[in-house]
């Protein structure tokens, strides 16, 4: 386990370094090093103001989404739970759009707060719907509730954008789901949320281990199931909200990262604590790689990162479904 984590760490570092070099023009290590050391000129400007911020944001976003996905999967005992599929992104998008069009929010802080509020509201809505249809433990119902709420919120967003065309121009960059052209100041929101999420989930790791049993058994060994579930969901929503505020809607990262993390561990059932570390690293790694890929595959253009992730994530999801015969209903 320790070796896996170290290997992942090294891979992440390599990806980050590569990310600074790669793009429309590939730079030599000397150029990048000089730029980081305070060099000047167009190349240095590209490295420090474009590639460095998007890499940093990618790392924070990826780690947040990976952990958020892990928490949602543990809490719902649903291997397919994921902030994007469960409508959290759509909630963030709607609140941001609403803030911009109706209240004229323009500051970064405003957009961040709106995204966080929206993500939390959407999470609450989805889980109360799936609980009220008796499906808290039913993967299908939770997913369908998430899908429905996401569609609903997306159509609200679309309507707002149709009415206010200027807002569309302001927001289109944000709604496309990508790490590029994001103001670095957003990290001031994303990093604290990631820290809160990571520390909080470490505190919850032991009860979350127990929550793998059914509710009644978990209760009987002394876990306050309701409180743990609510706290973990809250953390998951906060983490996802931070990611939405920074990158816009990004799908599938939260699904893919914990699954790959589980694959990496040998033996059955790694502890939640181990999974937290691995999901954080794996999420960050995938995010940086997907971002690099988005820069390269349709050069000189730039592919939307979220689409790249979906093209990788969907076949993986289908493979996962096909392999898993005894998926608990």
């Amino acid at each position: 386990m320790r070796r896996t984590a170290i290997a992942l760490c090294l891979a992440l570092c390599a990806a980050v370094v590569f990310s600074l070099h790669a793009g429309l023009t590939f730079y030599t290590p000397q150029t990048v090093f000089a730029a980081l050391m305070g060099g000047e000129g167009a190349d240095a400007l590209i490295v420090t103001t474009l590639r460095l911020p998007r890499t940093a944001i990618g790392v924070v976003c990826g780690a947040s989404l990976g952990l958020s996905g892990l928490l949602m999967q543990s809490v719902t005992r649903n291997p397919l739970a994921e902030p994007g599929l469960l409508g959290v992104n759509a909630g963030g998008a709607l609140f941001v759009t609403f803030g911009v069009t109706v209240f004229g929010v323009a500051s970064l802080a405003g957009i961040g707060v709106a995204a966080v509020m929206g993500a939390l509201a959407a999470t609450a809505l989805v889980f109360s719907i799936s609980a009220s249809t008796g499906g808290a433990g039913n993967p299908a119902t939770t997913l369908l509730a998430g899908f429905t709420v996401a569609a609903l919120l997306a159509s609200f967003t679309q309507t707002l954008l149709l009415i206010d065309e200027t807002a569309l121009e302001t927001l289109l960059f944000w709604l496309s789901g990508s790490f590029s052209d994001r103001p670095i100041g957003l990290l001031q929101l994303g990093v604290p949320l990631l820290l809160i999420g990571a520390v909080g989930s470490f505190l919850l790791a032991t009860p979350l281990d127990v929550l793998r049993l059914d509710d009644a058994s978990a209760r009987s060994v002394g876990v306050n199931v309701g409180v743990v579930r609510l706290a973990a969901l809250g953390l998951a929503a906060l983490l996802a909200a931070g990611a939405v505020a920074m990158a816009g809607p990004v799908l599938f990262l939260g699904l893919v990262a914990p699954h790959l993390a589980r694959r990496l561990t040998d033996g059955a059932l790694p502890s939640t604590r181990q999974l937290i570390v691995l999901s954080l690293l794996m999420g960050a790694l995938i995010a940086v790689l997907a971002d690099i890929l988005a820069r390269i595959i349709v050069a000189p253009g730039e592919a939307p990162m979220s689409a790249v992730l979906a093209l990788v994530g969907v076949p993986m999801l289908i493979h996962l479904l096909h392999r898993r015969k005894g998926l608990a209903a």
């Binding site: 899908f147 599938f252 093209l311 999801l317």
Partner: peptide, 12 residues
């Protein structure tokens, strides 16, 4: 599940 996955693929 297959439907949701393919819907996401189509959107992308």
């Amino acid at each position: 599940l297959y439907g949701i996955a393919l819907a996401a693929l189509a959107k992308a």
